[in-house]
Design a protein around this nucleic acid. Structure first.
Length: 564
RNA sequence: UGGGAUGUCGUCUAAUGGUAGGACAGCGGACUCUGGCUCCGUAUGUGAGGGUUCAAAUCCUUCCAUCCCAGCCA
């Protein structure tokens, strides 16, 4: 049993950790999640968060939350707050292990002076353009900077004056002295400090110079005693530099950097740049638009932390670039909500149904809240002579295999009665406006013990007792699964799905829906899972569709129509 | 064309020289007061070619394909 659980989560990183534990290299494990506070977290970050915090949990280690805040021009406190909220919401706890790379600015500076003193770093005065020229290209080696051979004293003096704000932005940089001919561009004397006279959201105006990622990250890891520094594939080329810094410096330990493939999800994008553009240009309504793959957006849509964590477990971790099918996410959220969501009835496209032999007045019927959860109890629903059913649940000329309502056909109204359609009322244009039915009083509760076969069961609401709903129907953000497959000359904007959000204001729901709480999820019977939106009020109930239910009838129809 | 990586069912991912397995998607069926859920069954895969071995997804070799790298971003 235990073995199975282990195997379920097995991946190459956990194998490395197992080996390190077995060999005695480490006694306990420390990982970290290191976001830059320059944007909102998305489902791709959730993969990394679950990986790092999940390892800490399973190995009884620790996972640090560390903000990689070394570039004050891009970063903001607003993002720090949203990131902490999202990580917590996903269900993870860092306890006292909250860090900021900016906490290490003093130490980083001290180490930089050591590099200078040992002749391993120098102050360079090449402009950005010149630096690019000197760097060479992928196939031609770079050239040494003319400032590369300054004395230690001169470098130290210049570096201190950089720190003290004597020079303008961009006029000088501190560079590591490694190898301008290296085939790895990251090793061609990389910049480790740049001048930025910008206020930092935590350190204020204490610093005029800020350390670069490559230098900061490895040192921060080492200072925190990280054992396994897990990052994405594009940093693979940076690993030699990660190791180089740690080899030069008197750091307390030397963490191992391990790279894995970031998450790609079909029909959406993970790029911070594109996501930001969608928000800024107004193609979506904000970072928490329910169509966004951001944690904030998915939370608003109604995805649960449990579903997202389950998803992260199921997609696994590997080094090969991949694209995960969005359907897996739908599967995870359905599986979670099936157990937890209370069932309610709502009609999205109402068609009036009048029961000719039902008396005036109404009656209360009992409906179970969740057949998957006996603890969920029952609720009362009101039945009367005039109802609404789903327009799609009636067909005048039903296709083969049709279980639903049709002229002369009998169906069950869920939790209520059997009804038989006797007449179809149309307007002048031929549009069906009303169905006339009779009901069988003996089938009260939706059941008869005379062995009658009633295949179809429909959801319904009572016309006089239903409440008006606004229902926001969401679908994929983009119309194609992989935006790398764009046609020549087209932009990702050309592939925005025009039907990604459909606002339905004619929907009707059973009255108990009025008492829903914001953020509460329901299964609208036969329709899908819905979540009370932030805009929800008792006067104007608003629900987001999280996902539909599986619909084998629709699939069967698609099959026969496309096969014809 | 330099360097770094990666190729296993449609998709994601296990298998650390010894029966290629799981999940999602698909298909078929049972059950059902949700055409939901559940249950049962089922097809499909080691990029290609050589080699080593009793035995290769795994080791060697030659190809092929894809991804990443020329920010004072992370």
């Amino acid at each position: 049993m235990e073995k199975l659980a282990e195997e379920k989560n097995s991946n190459f990183i956990r194998n490395i950790i197992d080996n390190d534990l077995e060999s005695g290299k480490h006694k306990y494990i420390v990982t970290r999640f290191p976001p830059e506070p320059n944007g909102y977290l998305h489902i791709g970050h959730a993969k990394s968060i679950c990986l790092n915090f999940g390892i800490a949990r399973d190995y009884q280690g620790k996972c640090h939350l560390r903000f990689d805040d070394t570039n004050p021009v891009k970063e903001d406190l607003e993002y720090v707050d949203s990131i902490m909220e999202d990580v917590r919401w996903l269900g993870w706890e860092w306890n006292d292990k909250l860090f900021f790379a900016s906490d290490y600015f003093d130490k980083l500076y001290e180490y930089a002076e050591i590099l200078i003193q040992e002749g391993k770093a120098f102050v360079c005065e090449l402009s950005m353009d010149e630096l690019r020229e000197y760097r060479g290209t992928l196939t031609v080696p770079g050239k040494n900077s003319p400032y590369r051979n300054r004395s230690v004293e001169e470098n130290l003096d210049l570096f201190r004056r950089m720190r003290d704000g004597e020079f303008p932005d961009g006029s000088k940089s501190l560079r590591a002295k490694i190898d301008m001919a290296s085939p790895n561009l990251n090793m061609r004397d990389p910049v480790i400090y740049r001048i930025k006279k910008t206020e930092h959201h935590r350190t204020g105006d204490s610093w005029q110079i800020y350390p670069m990622y490559d230098y900061t990250h490895c040192v921060s890891d080492a200072l925190e005693g990280i054992t396994h520094s897990i990052c994405t594939l594009e940093f693979e080329d940076h690993r030699p530099l990660y190791d180089w810094f740690l080899d030069q410096l008197p750091v307390p330990c030397h963490p191992r950097q391990i790279e894995f493939a970031r998450l790609n999800l079909s029909y959406t994008v993970m790029s911070k740049r594109l996501l930001l553009a969608l928000v800024k240009e107004g193609y979506v309504k904000g970072w928490d638009d329910p169509r966004m793959p951001t944690i904030a957006g998915m939370r608003r849509r109604g995805f649960t932390p449990e579903a997202i964590r389950d998803f992260a477990d199921r997609i696994g971790v590997a080094k090969a670039n991949s694209m995960v099918d969005f359907e897996l996410l739908n599967f995870c959220v359905r599986e979670d909500l099936n157990k937890k969501a209370l069932r309610r009835m709502a009609v999205l496209n109402p068609l009036k149904l009048t029961i000719s032999n039902y008396p005036e007045g109404s009656e209360e019927l009992t409906a179970e809240n969740n057949p998957e959860d006996s603890e969920a109890g029952n609720r009362s629903i009101t039945f009367s002579r005039e109802l609404y059913i789903e327009r799609e649940d009636f067909s005048e000329n039903p296709p083969k295999g049709w279980f639903r309502l049709a002229p002369g056909k009998e169906v069950r109204l869920k939790h209520a009665y059997y009804v038989t359609c006797t007449d179809v009322v149309k307007d002048d244009s031929g549009m069906i406006t009303e169905l006339i039915c009779t009901y069988d009083p003996k089938s009260r509760g939706g059941w008869s013990d005379d062995g009658r076969k009633v295949k179809g069961t429909l959801h319904w609401v009572s016309a006089a007792h239903a409440i008006a709903l606004e229902v926001r129907l969401y679908d994929h953000l983009f119309s194609i699964p992989d935006l790398n497959d764009m046609e020549e000359g087209k932009s990702y904007l050309d592939y925005l799905n025009p039907d990604s959000e459909i606002i339905n204001t004619m929907a009707l729901g059973e009255s108990s829906l009025q008492e829903a709480q914001i953020g509460e999820s329901f299964q609208f019977l036969r329709l899908g899972y819905f979540n009370a939106d932030y805009d929800f009020t008792a006067d104007k109930p608003v629900f987001n569709r999280i996902s539909t239910l599986r619909d084998s009838w629709a699939r069967q129809q698609n099959k026969s129509s496309s096969g014809a």
